[in-house]
Write a protein that binds this DNA or RNA. Sequence first.
DNA 1: CAGAACATACCAACCAGTCTGTATGCAAAC
DNA 2: GTTTGCATACAGACTGGTTGGTATGTTCTG
Lengths: 228, 228
Amino acid sequence: MQTEDRKRGKQGKRGTGSRRRAPEATRLALVEAAVDLVRASGVHATTVDQICAAAGATKGAFFHHFRSKEAILEAAVEHWCRGRAELYGRDLGGVTDDPLERLDRMLNGLAASVRAPGERTACLLGMVAQELAGSNHRVRALCEQMLQGWTDLVAGLLADAKRRHPPATDFDAHGMAWLLNSLWQGSLLAAKTRRDPELVAANLEHARRYILAHFSATNPQPPSQKCP
Amino acid sequence: MQTEDRKRGKQGKRGTGSRRRAPEATRLALVEAAVDLVRASGVHATTVDQICAAAGATKGAFFHHFRSKEAILEAAVEHWCRGRAELYGRDLGGVTDDPLERLDRMLNGLAASVRAPGERTACLLGMVAQELAGSNHRVRALCEQMLQGWTDLVAGLLADAKRRHPPATDFDAHGMAWLLNSLWQGSLLAAKTRRDPELVAANLEHARRYILAHFSATNPQPPSQKCP
DNA sequence: CAGAACATACCAACCAGTCTGTATGCAAAC
DNA sequence: GTTTGCATACAGACTGGTTGGTATGTTCTG
């Protein structure tokens, strides 16, 4: 179909590097196409041909860079998680060193990410895990690892917060982090099914209040003002 | 392959009713096989042939009862949700009329359902929604409807509870119900990926404490004793 | 015997993966 | 500096197995 983009790469000027052919760019295009398509339709409903077409590449290129469909799937999951970690990490960066405030910022960042116009309500990690955890051991393990990495990050924040602000009611940092992670995944699933991204924001707000309630001596707090 | 089960139905004694062939039984066997297989491997990874084999039926029987794969999928979702509603409804039945206590029982029932030995950690509804919400409008709408039904039930309980025990901190019953539903789905997803059903119970315990905290004037309460 | 309830052979489409061929860049031999 | 050799990076036709669905035949019931 529309191979124009890459045809240019074949006979036109160079892409990124100094060679006419930029293998890293091709690989990246394939991975990003895979991320998009799988997020839109799921793993099994996405074909290798579709990925190739979306990336402006051919089957030859595809199987040159990836041994199998499963291989690009793993690459896609890792790429996605790296990207998301970077995205949410930006919200945390430098502004404050109070872990509680950083957590608050992160929650705001998560809510903002689903509200972004044109952004589809879907987490690649959750979709791949849901579809393959029961049947593909390798992919399941990879998803578990990614999920764990994200949870450890949040748990670290929570542990810091506990040290800095001794909580009125103690709680397990990892348990709380898994709660947040589970809620995040479930919220995306429900929001996608309802076609209502606001559900994610509402649920995160509950989570925020639940967590803060452990630190303050008062009851679940009234909703705080955020950016209008 | 192993069509023994149904071969009996062909030449042996009757199954359920009075005819040698019991169409309703065949239909039910197909639906239940579909539920099992989809819960184990997902929608696209489950083939019509597999469903037929597991149900001890043939393709002829399958397409006699269902127009398409999508048709049995919708039947499976409805069957699953009916069954779950009945299962969790039993825990609520009659023992008490205090809505808060009934909610507590329901949460215990949910936790118990994932701990049941041999039970796989997977919700058909969540899996179908995750895999098809982005690409199949009909199925997405059905899943939304089922999800909504479950949420309405919980919201009703919560609204009753608010009437019976005026909460110290007010909250929106539907919002809270969606929170629970989202958390439930996400917990199942995370638990399946981690292969640790206890995660679901731990998350539900957080939810229980969060909800109860709205009613009592105290902080998030210490974990209550439950069945050992 | 009519129609429901199957059984079975069959098919066209699809899809992951392969195979063969080709263009390009680079390095060393000459 | 140009020819030769070779590896990378593709292009694209092809294939063998799978899959949802169909067409047709058969058996049993009312």
